[in-house]
Amino acid sequence: SSPSSPVALPPFFMRGSIIQLADGELKRVEDLKTEDFIQSAEISSELKIDSSTVERIDCGQSPNAVLIQFSVGELKAQVCVEVLVEYPFFVFGQGWSSCCPDRTTQLFELSCAKLCVGDVCVSLTLRSLR
C-alpha cells in the first residue's frame, strides 16, 4: 500500500462540520457563502477581511504539497504558503477551491472548484496590528 499519508488538514473542512459565524449563527462548512465571511469580519473587533489573489502555484517540497503565492490586500503584500494540495481556500463569489479538488472531495466530501492563478481568496488580518 502507499506510504503513510498523514492528513494534516484540520477537521473542520470535513463536510457537515458545524461552523459558528460571528453573530452566533451555525452553518455547515459546505453551506458557507462569501457574505458569511464578510459579515462575520464586519462585526469582529479583531479581524479584518482581505482579498488575496493567487499569483503563482508551484510544487511544494513534499509530494502532496504546493507553494501558493498570494498578493494580499490593496498593498499587494506578497505572501507564500505551503499547503497540502487538498487544502481548500474560499474564493470570493465562488466558494471552496483547492489545487486538487478531486482529493479534497475524496478526503473531506467537500465540493471544491480548482484553485487557479487569478482567483481571489478570502483571507484575514488582525485589525489591531499597527
Binding site: P10, P11, F12, F13, S17, I18, I19, Q20, L21, A22, L26, V29, L32, D36, F37, S40, S44, L47, K48, D50, S52, F70, V72, G73, L75, A77, V79, V81, F89, F90, V122, S123, L124, T125, L126, R127, L129, R130
Partner: peptide, 25 residues
C-alpha cells in the same frame, strides 16, 4: 442513561488562513 453527544462547533475564522500581517493603514 445516554448522554447527548456534543457536536464540535468551530469558529468561522478557523477556516481562513491568516495570510499576512496587517501593514500600516
Amino acid at each position: 442513561n445516554v448522554e447527548p453527544r456534543s457536536v464540535p462547533v468551530f469558529p468561522w475564522h478557523s477556516l481562513v488562513p491568516f495570510l499576512a500581517p496587517t501593514q500600516s493603514d
